[in-house]
Design a binder for these strands. Structure first.
Lengths: 345, 345
DNA sequence: CATCATTGCTGAACCGCTTCAGTACCCTAC
DNA sequence: GTAGGGTACTGAAGCGGTTCAGCAATGATG
């Protein structure tokens, strides 16, 4: 493997100093008063030598990497079958291209959770987008080390941490209102991780709204299923009770899809026997049958907003807002229908 | 923003030279004959100063970044609704953690396709995993610049480019055999990009097998639909012909899902009126109804293999194999059924 | 007691680039 | 004739590490 051409090679070949090459190639020739003739000569030499500046050299000299990390819970996060992850990454990548930053995908380091913060804060990225539960120690650790961070799709515990999120409480309320409006009174919910403020907000919005309308929903109607493969039997028990719920709000599309499969395999017909509302309204909702009614958060837009916010912070600018909460909407599709048993009550 | 602690700070504080600190912190104290006492002192000082080595400094000095890029066709690639992308990324990230390399997500740079190669080859990554069509100029450009690359899920045109792929021809054959075995004789196919050798192999395997068995399949039975939103009307025309196909092989799950939706919306009942076989057998196949029969390639395993291959190449080792072809399997599910009209022929 | 090996540590160079503070030169103006 | 001011360019330092060759001190050996 031959030595790469460096700025010194170009300088020697063009008969100028390295400095001059640097200024010319960075488009600062005018500003530094470098003559047109010299500029052209340098540019031609660089081209003929097939020279490209070494990125690491630049990073070190400029003390920035122009890279951001996207931090997920862990590699298993990718096991999701909804299109949440691709939609997030799409937003990050699109905005990344525009803001000219590299996107590093980070799940965890091999040495255990304590080292994640040091690793990320060791100068390889200028900032990080964090998608972890509210209380995750990584958020505090990175904040303490002074790395610019933005939490997205999760509202952090820590104060003063910029974030982009959905109004999850309202999302829960929308789901409840929709189901109540269809006449459902026996409601249940599949809630997410108990460490997640977001999941809790969805639950609280749903439960509070349901109870305010006089619907039955008790603690035993709330099942916690975090990852898609986590305790499917809990769902089955819920549906096999006497007087099972007629409508279900599930904290994520991903888990909602699994509930649909389980319900079908239990012989239930959807939505006749059970109405289901998901959360995220990923495009995969249109791929299942019946199409899943879901609370929409504008995933790609939010990811772009978070990325833009982070790049501003990294560059020392004050972003217009450092805490953005998007209002959710409901996309009504075929998985919800008027309650069949309402007359019986 | 205060100055970060550097190796010099630790050295001064511990009363030794920078060199000694470097050796100790890199675990080479023994080898360099540094006494246990000094080692401990340095380690304690480093800890008390909360010192972490700057990654960019190390990259420059060691002339490697320990980072790889994953290059997709473009940000729109994330629009897929199957779980292909997450499964790929999961494999790359898992193996990346084990191999201790960072994963950079790269779609394209803002300045246009020509600069992608220079960008990637400018020393910010030690290698790249490429998921692009066979003839993509990027592959040749990177190869010419000497950046270690591995093409995955795509068999490159260029010779001597290491790759990890599935035996797509066999995949096509498996699909044909399965459908023929169910009695189908009027077959059609939704084929992928004409630039993709992989898509062509799937088509050729399918068509050759079908014709060898005497089934009807002509050019007009082969519709090209690349991205999910690309010309759905072509599919409708295909199905509205007199004597429409009774079975369909679709080059990817993603597009197969869309065909299922379209078919349903045209009033067809699946699998009675149309059997469908997809490709990839992503976990999303279990989320659609009927569950999609699909040709399985072990996506996560393949992604890991590609990543392992690339890290070997980067480190100058000769990997055991530099071209791996996985055999496909068929996962038979509910979207395929015996042909209903076979008796009529 | 001179020689030699071993132990324990470090100075200086280097990785490839940027940036600050000049310098050298020439032209104009009083 | 010289101060003043552009114009065109560069030397040296610095970013934060790593690595090689070498050096001083110590103890063992003949």
């Amino acid at each position: 493997m031959m030595r790469r051409t460096t700025i010194g090679d170009v300088a020697r070949e063009a008969g100028v100093g390295k400095v001059t090459v640097s200024y010319v190639l960075n488009g600062r020739a005018r500003e530094r008063g470098i003559s047109e003739a010299t500029s052209q000569r340098i540019i031609n030499t660089a081209r003929s030598l097939n020279y490209t500046a070494n990125a690491v050299g630049q990073m070190l000299a400029q003390r920035r990497t122009n890279a951001i990390a996207v931090v997920f819970q862990g590699a298993s996060y990718f096991a999701s079958t909804s299109s949440f992850i691709p939609e997030v990454l799409r937003g990050v990548c699109e905005e990344g291209v525009e803001q000219r930053v590299d996107v590093m995908l980070h799940t965890n380091v091999a040495d255990g959770p304590d080292s994640d913060a040091s690793y990320l804060a060791s100068g390889r990225v200028d900032g990080a987008l964090i998608l972890r539960d509210a209380g995750d120690p990584l958020i505090k650790a990175l904040k303490d080390r002074g790395l610019p961070i933005v939490s997205f799709f999760s509202r952090p515990d820590e104060a003063d941490v910029p974030f982009v999120d959905t109004d999850n409480y309202s999302g829960g309320r929308l789901a409840a209102q929709h189901l109540l409006g269809l006449g459902h009174r026996r409601l249940a919910m599949i809630a997410g991780s108990e460490n997640s403020v977001d999941a809790a907000d969805r639950k609280n919005g749903f439960v509070a709204t349901a109870r305010a309308a006089g619907a039955q929903i008790e603690d035993r109607d709330i099942v916690v299923m975090y990852s898609p493969l986590d305790q499917p039997e809990a769902f089955c028990r819920l549906m096999q009770r006497p007087n099972p719920p007629t409508a279900l709000f599930v904290w994520s599309d991903d888990v909602a899809f699994q509930c649909m499969s389980l319900a079908t395999s239990m012989g239930l017909e959807l939505p006749r026997d059970l109405s289901i509302v998901g959360f995220d309204s990923t495009s995969a909702c249109l791929r299942v049958s019946p199409n899943l009614t879901s609370i929409r958060q504008p995933i790609t837009v939010m990811a772009r907003a978070a990325t833009r916010m982070l790049t501003s912070l990294m560059r020392g600018q004050t972003p217009e807002m450092d805490q953005i909460v998007f209002p959710p909407q409901i996309d009504v599709r075929a998985s919800t229908a008027p309650c069949q048993v309402s007359a019986q009550r």
